Simulated assay, not measured.
Amino acid sequence: MKFHEKLQNLRKNAGMTQLELAEKLMVSRQAISKWETGSAVPDLENIISICDLFGVSLDCLVRGIGTVETEEKIQDTAEKIVHQEHKREMKLKEKILLISAVISIVLLLGWKMNSISIAVIIIVWSAIGYVLYWNGRKLLELLSKSVRK
């Protein structure tokens, strides 16, 4: 697929008109039309702006190395990795909650709710809350990185 065909496909897939694309790139609509018909080629600065706007690599757009479909596959792979990481973290959280519940039950039954057992339960639950909070932050960071890419 040639540059002008890729540009037209990217624009249409984004649901943009030639005029909207021209406004975003700060060029005339006629320039976009010439680029899409193959009668003219944008300068390097505009090509880079097009890549940034549509989130494609320069190689994909200009040289034909990789395609939009390849980049979508990369995005899908990144999403799968994030999903797998999320599943691992959820299993860890489930284990932590199960262990903490067992510890709490043992403390409640074994010490008959004296002040020491209450303090230990509070400390255990605080530690669990802290671990879950930081794991949640890590998950959000992973998700935001994958969305940015």
Rank of each mutant, 00 (worst) to 15 (best):
residue 103 I to L: 14
residue 78 A to H: 07
residue 70 T to I: 07
residue 118 I to T: 14
residue 70 T to D: 15
residue 32 I to L: 03
residue 97 L to Q: 09
residue 38 G to P: 07
residue 75 Q to G: 03
residue 131 V to T: 11
residue 41 V to D: 04
residue 75 Q to T: 13
residue 132 L to C: 12
residue 53 L to K: 03
residue 50 I to W: 00
residue 117 S to K: 07
residue 93 K to D: 03
residue 78 A to L: 15
residue 92 L to A: 15
residue 66 G to F: 07
residue 90 M to G: 00
residue 32 I to R: 00
residue 88 R to N: 13
residue 85 E to A: 12
residue 47 I to C: 07
residue 99 I to F: 04
residue 66 G to M: 09
residue 118 I to G: 11
residue 61 L to Y: 01
residue 125 W to E: 04
residue 123 I to W: 08
residue 33 S to D: 12
residue 83 H to S: 03
residue 73 K to D: 14
residue 66 G to V: 06
residue 65 I to G: 08
residue 107 L to N: 07
residue 93 K to Y: 06
residue 109 L to A: 04
residue 65 I to R: 13
residue 111 W to S: 14
residue 52 D to S: 11
residue 60 C to H: 02
residue 81 I to L: 11
residue 62 V to T: 14
residue 63 R to M: 15
residue 61 L to N: 00
residue 116 I to E: 08
residue 42 P to Y: 05
residue 79 E to S: 03
residue 53 L to H: 11
residue 54 F to P: 02
residue 72 E to Y: 01
residue 132 L to D: 13
residue 109 L to R: 09
residue 90 M to P: 00
residue 125 W to S: 02
residue 42 P to S: 07
residue 46 N to G: 00
residue 98 L to H: 14
residue 77 T to D: 12
residue 127 A to W: 09
residue 89 E to W: 04
residue 81 I to C: 07
residue 37 T to P: 05
residue 109 L to F: 08
residue 130 Y to I: 09
residue 125 W to I: 03
residue 109 L to T: 10
residue 83 H to Y: 02
residue 123 I to G: 01
residue 55 G to H: 05
residue 121 I to S: 06
residue 74 I to C: 05
residue 81 I to D: 06
residue 63 R to G: 09
residue 47 I to T: 11
residue 56 V to A: 05
residue 39 S to H: 11
residue 97 L to W: 04
residue 73 K to M: 15
residue 126 S to F: 13
residue 103 I to R: 04
residue 35 W to Q: 01
residue 51 C to E: 00
residue 49 S to E: 05
residue 60 C to G: 03
residue 57 S to R: 08
residue 67 T to N: 00
residue 109 L to M: 09
residue 107 L to Q: 04
residue 69 E to Y: 05
residue 97 L to H: 10
residue 92 L to C: 10
residue 81 I to K: 08
residue 122 I to N: 02
residue 79 E to W: 01
residue 127 A to D: 01
residue 107 L to M: 06
residue 111 W to V: 06
residue 98 L to E: 15
residue 88 R to K: 13
residue 85 E to N: 11
residue 80 K to N: 10
residue 99 I to T: 08
residue 92 L to I: 13
residue 98 L to P: 00
residue 71 E to R: 13
residue 58 L to F: 15
residue 77 T to L: 12
residue 73 K to R: 12
residue 62 V to R: 04
residue 54 F to C: 03
residue 125 W to P: 00
residue 107 L to R: 03
residue 91 K to I: 02
residue 71 E to M: 15
residue 60 C to A: 12
residue 119 A to E: 10
residue 75 Q to P: 02
residue 118 I to E: 08
residue 69 E to S: 09
residue 95 K to P: 00
residue 90 M to L: 14
residue 64 G to L: 03
residue 36 E to F: 04
residue 56 V to Q: 02
residue 132 L to V: 15
residue 91 K to F: 08
residue 49 S to Y: 00
residue 70 T to G: 04
residue 130 Y to G: 02
residue 64 G to D: 02
residue 35 W to F: 08
residue 70 T to S: 14
residue 66 G to C: 08
residue 112 K to A: 08
residue 80 K to G: 01
residue 70 T to E: 15
